[in-house]
Simulated scan of single mutants.
Amino acid sequence: MAATIETPENNLNTDLGLSYLIKPAPITTGKQKALILLHGVGSNEQDLFSLAKYLPEDYTIISPRGPFVLGEGRFAWYQVDFSSGKPEINAKQEAQSRETIREFIVQVKEKYKLDEVYLGGFSQGAIMSYTIGLTQPGLITGVLAFSGRILQEIRPLVAEPASLKELRVLIAHGTQDGTLQVHYAREAKTYLEDLGIKPGYHEFNGGHQITGEVLTVVSEWLKL
């Protein structure tokens, strides 16, 4: 069996508030830009990091690990219960993760001298991305939400519309999603529009997943 060759890109970094993987931008075009990707519940930092090769080369890709351990190689930003038929969150854990992610972004921007940071995520990672973008709009340039929703619990904390006008948002959601149904994406679009944000919006024929079609949309959106 061939030995695994460790490279800087698959070594877990532990020097900041969250453990993370990083793939530096192979090329630069002036501004130093990064995309931070937040995994879904029960996953880990390797999941979305595997998409790095499909994303624009002038972006540094960073993928942190959620702080709550669910099992071997399984992490979360907060625990969630679906037993009632709708997702019920652990609000205390969500608030802790919100602050931890905020601090991590500040640390990343300083350490890697970044001019623009986009925050994206899948499912629970998308939920946290929405939350950070809407409550801390000056911290990031844009939000990418894959198969997520905007929590009712954070809406009282959302920043004033005037401070949100520069925030870019991209929503992608499968019409056959059985975990977080597509109505969550449609509700998010309407809510954002009411705040004065005009999100990029893409529904695709699929389930709770990120498809090649979505990656193409993301790549083009990031180049705008």
Rank of each mutant, 00 (worst) to 15 (best):
W221K: 00
Q79L: 09
H202G: 05
P199R: 10
F82C: 09
E213L: 10
K113L: 07
Q96F: 14
L16K: 06
P67Y: 11
H173P: 02
L157E: 15
F204C: 08
L164D: 06
S163N: 02
H39Q: 01
T175F: 00
Y118A: 06
Y20G: 08
D81W: 08
S147L: 09
A76S: 13
E103S: 15
L192K: 05
Q152N: 15
M1F: 10
G212H: 00
G196L: 13
N13M: 15
G42H: 00
R65I: 09
Q96W: 07
L192T: 09
F75A: 11
E6Q: 14
N205D: 13
N90E: 15
Y118T: 13
T60G: 03
S19Y: 05
L180V: 14
T175Q: 06
P87M: 08
E213M: 05
G212D: 07
T135N: 05
N10Y: 07
S123R: 06
S123H: 02
K109V: 01
L48Y: 07
T179P: 00
L114Q: 02
T4P: 08
I197R: 11
R98K: 15
H39G: 01
V41T: 11
L70V: 05
K86G: 03
K109N: 03
A2S: 10
H39V: 08
Y59W: 04
Q124R: 04
H39M: 01
K165H: 06
T211Q: 01
G148H: 10
I61L: 13
K53F: 13
F82G: 09
V106M: 07
V143D: 05
N90H: 14
